[in-house]
Design a protein around this nucleic acid. Structure first.
Lengths: 182, 182
DNA sequence: AGTGCTTATACAACGGATTGCGCAGCGCTT
DNA sequence: AAGCGCTGCGCAATCCGTTGTATAAGCACT
């Protein structure tokens, strides 16, 4: 696992609410990750019980009050401990790839439609990440080195997927053409 | 989720034992996925309860007996149903990327060492997949279209990671050089 | 003779993750 | 005025996944 460690990494830079974290998970680290708010709130609760984070109440006008969490010294120690031990292999879970693998049973047109939808989402993400990378680069890459590298990971991942999608798209179209020729 | 669907996809081609499936997960679909044998045996048990697969006992000499599972008509229907509904977004869980994101706290040399280890594993996988792709291509790509595309996904994924790793490696080395120059 | 790898299956326990539900107020559009 | 979407927090149930343990036989190496 390591949702807890991902949260600690994000809190290292700045204090944040559960809601903030959920959004950040959709940007930097979460390019590639994903975590729902329920999971984050739960994990923040546990981290708080274990004294790895603490929070202060911030009343807001117009919006609900929020809890701003910060990392504690104990949290930082835990992070350092975790950083020292080897990371497990990366895991991917790509349902669409499984569909392609089972392509014989699938309806080709349905697959194509889904492919286009997913590709559109990926292209949007790619644009967001490229804009972010550019911004970080202009601000001075060295100051933001680790954020910059994280965003690069996201960019390369989107590009690789899109390249694959293009291959799949062409194969599926050929497949359709052959089927209608019969 | 869809470990169950991934299993059904694999069983669609041929009957297989739990052990066989565990290995196939390390090749075709599992390039990118990963599932342990415990999970697979458990899921096969459930699929059997739900009549989506059945099995026959095969006594073996020298080796333990095995159970060869096949997909049933109900299983095939379930697969078709699943193929029709939209796949969720792909998820990645890359602990090493989280470490890079938290790079300020980490020891640069430790990160570099880990990077080299992971890169070595990726390069090995890449070689395996490229060999597999070549084999499928020679056998006639159209016969193996969906397996071929699945393997391509693995190849592109490995390459993207390795390219990223190269960027990270150079940044970390620059970082080390700067630190020692101070 | 002992160690370890491969084939082969399976249970138990715990912890992580997903899904569904619920509350609450503001602002914008239709 | 009703509906939708955003900010913001949370519980409960269930399901998925991981880790540890167990059994069992053959083969190869030392």
């Amino acid at each position: 696992m390591s949702l807890r460690h991902a949260i600690l990494v994000l809190l290292q830079d700045q204090e944040a609410s559960g809601y903030d974290l959920a959004r950040e998970f959709a940007n930097s680290i979460g390019l590639v990750w994903n975590a729902t708010h329920q999971q984050i709130y739960l994990e923040l609760g546990k981290l708080n019980d274990q004294r790895m984070v603490n929070f202060r109440h911030v009343p807001q006008e117009g919006k609900p009050d929020k809890k701003l969490y910060s990392i504690t010294e104990e949290g930082r120690q835990e992070l350092i401990r975790w950083l020292r031990k080897p990371a497990g292999p990366a895991r991917i879970r790509d349902a669409f790839m499984v569909k392609v693998a089972g392509g014989e049973l699938a309806d080709t047109q349905t697959l194509i439609n889904e492919l286009e939808l997913l590709a559109k989402q990926r292209r949007e993400r790619l644009a967001t990440f490229e804009a972010l990378a550019k911004k970080l680069d202009e601000q001075g890459r060295e100051q933001n080195l680790f954020s910059y590298l994280t965003v690069r990971r996201g960019i390369l991942d989107q590009r690789a997927w899109l390249q694959w999608a293009e291959e799949v798209r062409q194969s599926l179209h050929t497949d359709l053409a052959n089927a209608s020729a019969t």
